[in-house]
Design a protein around this nucleic acid. Sequence first.
DNA 1: ATGGCATCTTGTCAACGGAAAGATAGGCTG
DNA 2: CAGCCTATCTTTCCGTTGACAAGATGCCAT
Lengths: 191, 191
Amino acid sequence: MTETRGYHHGDLRRALLTAAVRVIEESGPAALSLRDLARRAGVSHAAPAHHFGDKSGLLTALATEGFDLLAEALDGAGGDLLDRGVAYVDFAVRHRAHFEVMFRPDLYRPDAENLVAARQRASDALHSGVAALPEGHRPKAQDPQGDALAAWSIVHGFATLWLSGALPSQVGDDDPRATARAVARRLFPRR
Amino acid sequence: MTETRGYHHGDLRRALLTAAVRVIEESGPAALSLRDLARRAGVSHAAPAHHFGDKSGLLTALATEGFDLLAEALDGAGGDLLDRGVAYVDFAVRHRAHFEVMFRPDLYRPDAENLVAARQRASDALHSGVAALPEGHRPKAQDPQGDALAAWSIVHGFATLWLSGALPSQVGDDDPRATARAVARRLFPRR
DNA sequence: ATGGCATCTTGTCAACGGAAAGATAGGCTG
DNA sequence: CAGCCTATCTTTCCGTTGACAAGATGCCAT
């Protein structure tokens, strides 16, 4: 795979991003170091600057990728709101590095063009799920905006708590998806 | 207030913690620098080490203080679960620096003795609110553990989303408490 | 008063982020 | 094919940071 031993790396940008994901998954975003990423990719410490400008540029790219992956995951989860909620949590668990960066805007540039667009796509995917909700499933039929916010809050909250390790030890430790479903079901009891 | 110009600061520990809160509120935990805090307090760059050991020690102290403040806020919010939920969000908004650190365990030492105790106090305050919930308000009477997790998730999720600025611009921008109440009411529709 | 001890300072080191300037490779135009 | 052009990567450098070590200062109990 990495047979390119020459002056040019070949796909340094991607290599840096995947290395960043590894580091963040292992030690959190605070432990991220551009120089360490460069070492892992086998390039000099200043090489990343060309692709991302600076550290926040790299994290902006990571967050953008994350929002795109999230939109994809939500769209691929089918029409049932509960399934979409579970998909949200599943995304957070399986792409924990992306997720942790996405909702930490002090780490990147929240007004970058690509990022804003990707976040909008994810937001659309999120709201389209609630809009498709049949009448009986809605707690308050006259405020779909509020419904969406409530649904988003509960799955986002569970995902965040689970990732932070703040939950009492045994809770959903083995299968966060099942626990997430049980939690989300309380908001939309039908079905 | 700060008339102590001598060799000793007087209350450096507190001064550093409040300075840290300011910095985090303005620029996030990533921008925190021990040396900057020392400068703000008017002491040498190595003075903080005596009180907190290292950076994670300072953040451990901040998180511990946060959990204690949270337990206090929840206990002081009365017996109504909805009020307690709003109090949770209110705490996050009014003590945003503490809150942001508390649920970012990669920044501190999650197994520190004082911190574990404080977190337990907060957890007790959280669960006691759900335990006191009358029958009719519970979506699923046979699983109070799950009820607590759902309640925690929805208020924690809303607080996190609001703090991260991920919500569409106008939503609860002026009064997060009212929006939080409307959101939490969807989980416990009665009253 | 005096010895102990908590507190604070000064000095130092390695690692980091970022900028500047040069080297290399591959592609494009003529 | 020759010359140039541009993206990519390296080398060098600077200021900042976290952390440690050793010394200075002042409070306090005996």
